[in-house]
Simulated scan of single mutants.
Amino acid sequence: MKEEIIIAGFGGQGVLSMGKILAYSGIMQGQEITWMPSYGPEMRGGTANVTVILSDDRISSPIVHEYDTAIILNQQSMDKFAELVKPGGVLIYDPNGIVHHPTRTDINIYRIEAAEEAARMNNAKAFNMIVLGGFLSVKPIVKMENVRKGLEKSLPARHHHLIPMNEEAIQRGMDAVKAVNVL
């Protein structure tokens, strides 16, 4: 198994941490991983993306030109990465702020109302875990016990009390993701 993923959105949406948790989850599962972040000089509001590769075999290069999965959280990222999903691949997006929705017919498209779900939880910081849950529902490439270990590894010990809330957000995301176009 090898999964090449791009997660892209605005800084402050938890893009990089979502990728980090996914990468740590893969490590806990004994997989080879790469985590390659890219972000502008702005801390919040600028664009940010991270490429994560999880593989059962050694990864020859962290550079990816086409993705098995794209997780898109803003219009700029949709414009840049939607066309880079491999035919038969997956695109998951939150429609909040998306003006031009994906129209490709050769990929599987899923929509997750993560911003609305985070508002229902009264916790905007749960947004990225809701999105992660949607991804894991569509592509369960890491086991939930390893996601918990990934959360423990990526969060400082002083924030470990937030792990149950993060797990609840992941579950909500698993329940909230909806197919738009499935091949």
Rank of each mutant, 00 (worst) to 15 (best):
D56H: 11
R120P: 00
D79K: 12
G19F: 12
I92K: 08
A82C: 11
D68M: 02
M78N: 07
W35S: 14
Y110G: 04
I107P: 01
Q31P: 00
Q75R: 02
I92C: 03
P87I: 03
M18D: 07
P37M: 13
L22S: 12
Q29H: 04
P102G: 00
Y110C: 04
N49C: 14
A119Y: 05
N96H: 14
E117T: 14
I107T: 00
N74C: 13
R111A: 02
I53H: 05
A119T: 12
E42Q: 15
A70S: 10
K125V: 09
R111Y: 01
T51Q: 10
F127M: 08
D79G: 04
Y39F: 15
L22P: 13
G19D: 12
P41I: 14
N108I: 00
N122H: 14
I63G: 01
V64W: 04
E32V: 02
Y67A: 00
T69H: 09
A114C: 07
D79H: 05
V90H: 11
I107L: 00
W35A: 15
I107V: 08
N122C: 12
E116Y: 06
K125N: 12
P41E: 09
H100I: 03
I63S: 02
K20N: 14
A126Q: 08
P95C: 09
A126H: 07
P87T: 02
P41K: 13
I109D: 00
E66M: 06
K125P: 00
S77N: 13
M43G: 01
V85Q: 01
